[in-house]
Simulated scan of single mutants.
Amino acid sequence: MSAISALPFLKPLHFRPPRSSPGRQRRHTLPASEFRCLTPEDAISVFEIEREAFISVSGDCPLHLDEIRHFLNLCPELSLGWFEEGRLVAFIIGSLWDQERLSQDALTLHKPHGTKVHIHVLAVHRTFRQQGKGFILMWRYLQYLCCLPYVRHATLMCEDFLVPFYSKCGFKALGPCEVTVGSLNFIEMNYAVRGHAFMRRNSGC
């Protein structure tokens, strides 16, 4: 999934770059690719991506703008954004849940003492789809959850056509979800973070 770049050409030791002229401005560039937790300041960018991704398909969004701000204020550490040159291109937002299975309350609540991360939404900007970014971001997110000692499981609900994608990410289908949104029904899926504790031991977390 990741490209290996060639080593840069090494300059001889006696080489000295030319001095910059006093009037020349130094160039500052943003990181080509960066993964970080989201902040409330990212909420509008998040919502714009989510709205385009979901409204055209289902007519609604998993999280509305006020709900995005709600979760990014309460538990920003359970979110992850992928930025390319400072621009958000994909994201995940989660919160903690404390029950065996999801219920309607899980759509809006964050349970601080829970051990299960409810993944509310994963979305990729339209110009970056069909590039495997959703799978890579989820893989990075699950690796990150393995570094959080209080997390035992990750759970989500999805429509039938997305089950193969999340199965490829390592989730197991638990069956129909109790939660419904309008006329939509979902499959609940679970990822055993505790079962991947060896990743935590070997990751330096």
Rank of each mutant, 00 (worst) to 15 (best):
E84M: 15
E84A: 12
E84L: 14
R87P: 11
R87F: 15
V89F: 12
V89T: 15
A90G: 15
A90I: 10
A90R: 14
F91A: 14
F91M: 15
I92V: 15
I92F: 11
I92G: 13
I93C: 14
S95T: 15
L96Q: 09
L96Y: 08
W97P: 09
W97K: 08
D98G: 11
D98F: 14
Q99K: 12
Q99E: 13
Q99V: 15
E100I: 10
E100F: 12
R101E: 03
L102Q: 01
L102P: 05
L102V: 06
S103H: 11
S103Y: 09
D105S: 10
D105P: 02
D105Y: 03
D105E: 07
L107H: 05
L107K: 11
L107Q: 12
L107I: 01
L107M: 08
T108R: 04
T108Q: 11
H110M: 10
K111W: 06
H113D: 08
H113N: 09
H113F: 11
T115D: 11
K116I: 05
K116C: 06
K116W: 05
V117E: 02
V117I: 01
V117A: 14
H118Y: 10
I119E: 03
I119N: 00
I119F: 02
I119L: 03
I119S: 00
I119C: 00
I119V: 10
L122Y: 00
L122D: 04
L122G: 00
V124M: 07
V124T: 07
V124Q: 14
V124L: 03
H125L: 07
H125T: 08
R126Q: 15
F128Q: 14
R129F: 10
R129S: 10
Q131W: 06
Q131S: 15
G132L: 05
K133A: 14
K133C: 13
G134C: 01
G134F: 02
G134D: 07
F135E: 11
F135W: 11
F135R: 12
F135G: 13
F135Q: 14
M138H: 00
W139F: 11
W139P: 10
R140P: 06
Y141F: 09
Y141H: 07
Y141R: 04
Y141W: 06
L142D: 07
Q143D: 08
Q143I: 07
Y144K: 08
Y144D: 06
L145W: 02
L145F: 02
C146L: 04
C146D: 02
C147R: 12
L148W: 03
Y150G: 08
Y150M: 12
V151M: 05
V151E: 10
R152Y: 14
H153P: 08
A154F: 06
A154R: 09
T155S: 08
T155I: 04
L156E: 02
L156N: 01
M157S: 02
M157V: 08
M157F: 09
C158N: 09
E159K: 09
D160K: 07
F161H: 10
L162M: 04
L162T: 02
L162Y: 00
V163F: 01
P164A: 00
F165K: 00
Y166D: 05
Y166R: 01
S167F: 04
K168L: 07
C169E: 06
C169W: 01
G170H: 04
F171S: 03
K172S: 08
K172Y: 01
K172A: 10
K172V: 09
A173K: 01
A173F: 02
A173N: 06
L174Q: 05
L174F: 05
G175L: 00
